[in-house]
Amino acid sequence: MPPMGYRQIAAALRAAIDAGEHPPGSRLPTEAELAAEYDVSRETVRRALAVLKAAGLVTTATSQGTVVARPPVRVRLAHYATAADPDRPGRDLGPWETACAEQGVTSRVEVTGVDRVPAPEQVAELLGLPAGSEVVRRGRRMFAGEDLAQVQESWVPADVAAGTPLERPEKLVGGLYAALTAAGVELAAATEEVAGRGPTAEEQDLLGLPEAGTVLEVWRVTRDRTGRAVEVLHTVSDIRRVARVYEDLPIG
């Protein structure tokens, strides 16, 4: 039988990971051990491991070797819906922190900037505002462990944010929906457009993506009970580290 190719080895290792033979956080055998097991060169093993790394299944570190990655953080739409409830358990946590906590993943959220700006053309259109209308922009970075998992920008009409924590530079306790609710906004509905795409050069560097990496891009518009758009959210996620879950959607 001819020796296995690197894609076959990658498939075999992936099957072993999926079967639980190599649980998250465990180390795979060394390159030398794998080369001996499959009777191939170490270069073939390296190419197989590169396939797994590009798929987000393993990470590599000089001190630890090749480690099986933890599964993506599953962010459910319900994490946002319940954030508007001031009496919910864990109300000090935002949706990202809640999702991570439920899955035993340490997390943090960094605010990268809060300012008043003219609404970009696409944002103004989504908010139903004249081009250039003043909005409050909030930038954030979300980490799973030490890994940057996603970056976000939100835009809120200036009159909605005025005089509230939404226009202050510190992190919002409980997340943006909690802040909107505390400001008296009655949230009613959200629409999300989700797509996968290749990263920009800036996104690739920021998220530490491999050459063939993919990001998950989300545009969300949130409306109040009058139908007014009160927030536009743009999220770019490392598809290896974030999954979005939509549950109990109506059919028919």
Rank of each mutant, 00 (worst) to 15 (best):
L129K: 09
L127Q: 11
E125K: 10
S107Q: 07
V135D: 04
E102C: 09
G163R: 03
T164D: 02
R138Q: 03
E110T: 07
A144E: 02
A99L: 11
V156F: 00
P130V: 08
L148Q: 08
Q122S: 15
G128Y: 13
L148Y: 13
P120T: 08
W155F: 15
V136M: 04
L129D: 09
R137M: 08
V123N: 10
W96L: 02
E102M: 12
G163T: 10
P118W: 04
V114S: 05
R138C: 01
V114R: 02
Q150G: 02
E125P: 02
Q152P: 01
V114K: 05
P120R: 08
A124C: 11
A161R: 00
A161M: 02
Q122D: 14
D147I: 06
S133H: 11
T112A: 05
R137L: 06
W96Q: 05
T112F: 00
V111H: 03
V117G: 07
L148S: 09
A158P: 04
E110C: 01
C100M: 11
D159F: 06
A158R: 08
E110H: 08
A124F: 13
F143R: 04
D147M: 06
E121C: 04
E134Y: 00
A101E: 13
P118M: 04
E97H: 07
C100Q: 05
T98P: 01
W96G: 02
